[in-house]
Amino acid sequence: MKALIAFASMSGNTEDMAAILKETLEGKGIETEMMELDDTNVEDLSSYDYVLIGSYTWGDGDLPYEAEDFYEEVSSLELNDIKVAVFGSGDYSYPKFCEAVHTFYDMLKTTGASVFPETLKMELAPDTDEDVVCCQEFATSFLTWAAFLEKRAEDHVS
């Protein structure tokens, strides 16, 4: 199984989250690549079993500049059979906390991807042990959910 963690991070907070997710997935035996959104070729998404997309939120609930092209390109794809999860960092001092997470989540639902119903939103950086555990549990829950979907699909075929 292969996973891609694609992210946008200005201050390093979302990148730190991505690194914890990567370490957790690799600990579960998943070959995992991590790259920034603006370096990600959206045509390659279908070559992964799992895709995790992370972004910080810019300004008043906007996608950051470096996520806009990725968002537009992905929104026109059909991502059937790909399991996707969304995560991001934010700052509660802004009116729309982690709105980029919601924006990506809603768009991914329209692509036909199987979108993990939970999202991971974190205030600033994953600095505490509790934050790290939260990221680890998110990755583990995502894999459990994906395995359930795969098993259900196999049962449906047989």
Rank of each mutant, 00 (worst) to 15 (best):
E31I: 15
D38A: 03
K121R: 05
D155E: 15
Y71M: 14
R152A: 15
L120T: 10
L63D: 06
D155A: 13
F148S: 13
Y71G: 14
C98Q: 12
E150Y: 10
I82T: 08
C98M: 09
F104C: 11
I5K: 00
L108N: 01
L21N: 02
G61S: 12
D127C: 08
N13M: 07
A139W: 03
E137A: 12
T128I: 06
I82P: 13
A100V: 03
L45P: 00
F97Y: 05
Y94F: 15
T110P: 13
Y48W: 02
S141P: 06
H156R: 08
F138K: 08
H102E: 15
G88V: 02
T40Q: 08
K109D: 05
D127G: 09
M1C: 04
F70V: 05
Y71C: 14
M107R: 09
E68F: 11
N80Y: 11
V86W: 01
G12E: 11
E15Q: 06
M122A: 00
V101H: 08
Q136K: 14
E15S: 13
F148I: 05
S46E: 04
A67V: 02
P126V: 15
N13W: 07
D106K: 02
T14N: 09
Y50D: 03
E99C: 11
W58N: 01
A100I: 01
F138W: 07
L25V: 05
L120W: 08
Y71D: 09
E15N: 07
A85L: 02
N13C: 11
E66Y: 03
K2V: 10
Y94P: 13
A146T: 10
T110Q: 14
I20F: 03
K28A: 13
I30H: 03
V115C: 04
S89V: 04
T119N: 05
V42C: 04
A100Q: 04
C98A: 08
L45D: 00
T111S: 11
R152I: 10
E43T: 06
C135D: 09
I20Q: 03
L77V: 03
E130L: 06
Y92D: 07
M107P: 11
G61F: 14
Y92F: 07
E130N: 04
T103A: 06
P117D: 06
E43F: 08
F116S: 05
S47P: 10
D155R: 12
H156E: 14
E72R: 13
A6H: 04
E15K: 00
S55E: 00
A113E: 11
E78M: 01
F87S: 12
L25A: 00
T144W: 08
K2S: 12
V101I: 07
P64E: 01
I53W: 10
Y94L: 12
A67F: 08
M34C: 06
N80R: 02
E123H: 04
W145R: 09
S11I: 07
G112S: 00
E99Q: 10
G27T: 14
G59E: 06
V42Y: 10
S75H: 03
S141Y: 10
N13Y: 05
E43C: 02
K151D: 15
T144L: 07
A8R: 01
C98W: 10
M34K: 10
E118C: 02
S89E: 00
